[in-house]
Amino acid sequence: MLTAVLFWLFGVSAVVFGFLVFRLDSMARVTFALLASFVFVACEVLLLGLSYLGVVIVLMMVMEMVIMAVFMIMYMMNPAGLMPMAMYHNKPGAMSVSLGTFAVLATGTFLVDWPESRGSRPSDTTKSLGESLMGPQMLTMMVLGLVLFATIVATVVLATNRGRYDRFGDDLRARPDDPVPGGVRR
């Protein structure tokens, strides 16, 4: 009974806060609404017995949303929400597509004859995940590590300003527009 109540509480809260992300005016409030939605989803994951993954989702999303708040304030006007904010395009089209998607998914959810559970749930889900990642799923773990490393390199390359080795731009025949010319002026 308590589990069912918690499921509905967390589920409705996750959806409401998710919807508020696109309704609030302040960028800071928007970011924390998204964080609340993630935290309630993590609570649902915890309800399903995945204690380690639930806690990791909370920790990861708190950090991610704090970083996101910085970017929101960097790139968005009206960070404090002092005036109404509306930056939409094709709102009715987007609404109809998303409602249609929800209708198709919800219909499929209730029409599909889902299979019965195969196997029994492990008593220690964290140990089971760890053994899997360090055993049969080691290749997955290594690929994820490589992907994260490649992401670090790619994002640094993309986000840093072009340095002195890129001062010619696209036209290599022109003289570079250096504020202080280097070399020996030959």
């Binding site: 996750a14 959806v15 998710g18 696109f22 928007v30 094709n90 089209g93 609404m95 597509v97 998607t101």
Partner: peptide, 17 residues
Amino acid sequence: LLAIGLYGALSQQSVVM
């Protein structure tokens, strides 16, 4: 959640949103 996210991804002008 997927439908709400899809609405945001399709309707928002800001890249961050």
